[in-house]
Amino acid sequence: MRIIEPFAVTSAMMLESNVPETDHPAWASATTYAAGQRVIFAHGIWESVKGGNTDHNPGADTTSTWWVRVGATNRWRAFDDRLGGLTTGGATITYSIALPRTLNAICFFGLNAESVRIKITVPGPTVIHDQTITLASRDAVGNFWEYVYNSFTFKPDLVITDLLMPSGARIDLTISAGSNAQVGEIMIGNDIRIGTTLTDTSLGIVDYSKKDRDEWGGIFLVPRPVTKTVSFRFAIPTEGAARVQKIMERVVSKICVFYAVEGEDPFGTTVAGIMRDYDLTLGAGRSFGTIQAESLA
């Protein structure tokens, strides 16, 4: 059982990207906006609530009197803590990020790509890591004929740990596809070992769709996002309980990556989301805990 605690990517850390930030015009204080017009401000897309909108700063409008934020720009959707919005590009999507502190893990979610390249350069400049990961995979099969006739697919999620990314390093990320490269979320952070994952870890989903029946029993569905839930069961030496407690207190209000096994995850336990519940029962020598995590929408 492990948790990757992400470090927020800020404007100061973003050195370069080939994804243009031209979704809409930049907000200008002297421009009068009509209802429904959209602008870019602080890497977000804002929509004017009503007409005659002049010199109202979107970032200062905390009551949405003049502006409502509808999401991040295409460039910054990869860092907006949501899986529903995708950063889209052409054959490649590239980001160059400067690290203000030492980190050791990178995660990608919602990929539509053939490969991902991670290049790490330290001042000098010296390249200390350059790795290209091919995302092609084949679903598990039951016999030879399924192997022959099942087509290849591309993994949508990728978790890379045990990286050396020292403070001051430059991280160059390249997401490559034949065309229309996409990524839902990129998280850079530290990988923290919690304990040993147990076999009674369980999977589930939460469906936020609206389901009603009329007086004749007919069903009306309003589709809404479905999130994945994982109830991780783990064990730790009891002397490590205080350490785990402090980690849980730190990540309880953060979006993190929760996962059960290193490398390929054949069970689908990897979750980028929030911790809904946590419990640790102390025992003599060995203690047992549960972490309930729910994915982002």
Rank of each mutant, 00 (worst) to 15 (best):
T227A: 15
I219D: 03
F234K: 06
G218M: 09
T153A: 01
D207F: 00
I188F: 08
I188A: 09
R170H: 02
A169Q: 02
L221M: 05
T199L: 06
D200M: 05
S151L: 03
N180F: 15
E146C: 00
S167G: 14
N150T: 09
L173H: 04
A181K: 04
D212H: 03
T161H: 01
N190C: 08
R193H: 12
L203T: 15
L203W: 11
V159A: 06
M187D: 03
D172F: 12
P225C: 06
T227S: 14
V222Y: 01
R224S: 06
F220S: 13
F220A: 09
V222N: 08
R233G: 13
L163F: 04
T199P: 02
T197R: 03
Q182A: 15
D172M: 06
G195S: 08
R233W: 12
I219E: 13
Q182E: 15
K155M: 10
F234Q: 05
R213N: 02
T153S: 04
N180Q: 14
D172K: 10
L198Q: 15
S231Y: 05
F234S: 09
Y147Q: 02
V148G: 00
I236G: 04
G178Y: 13
D172R: 12
F220I: 11
G142H: 00
K228D: 11
G217I: 04
V159E: 04
G184H: 04
W216V: 12
V230S: 07
D207V: 02
S176D: 11
P223G: 01
I188M: 12
I236M: 09
P166R: 08
G240Q: 13
T201Y: 03
G204Y: 00
P223M: 03
D172Y: 12
G217L: 04
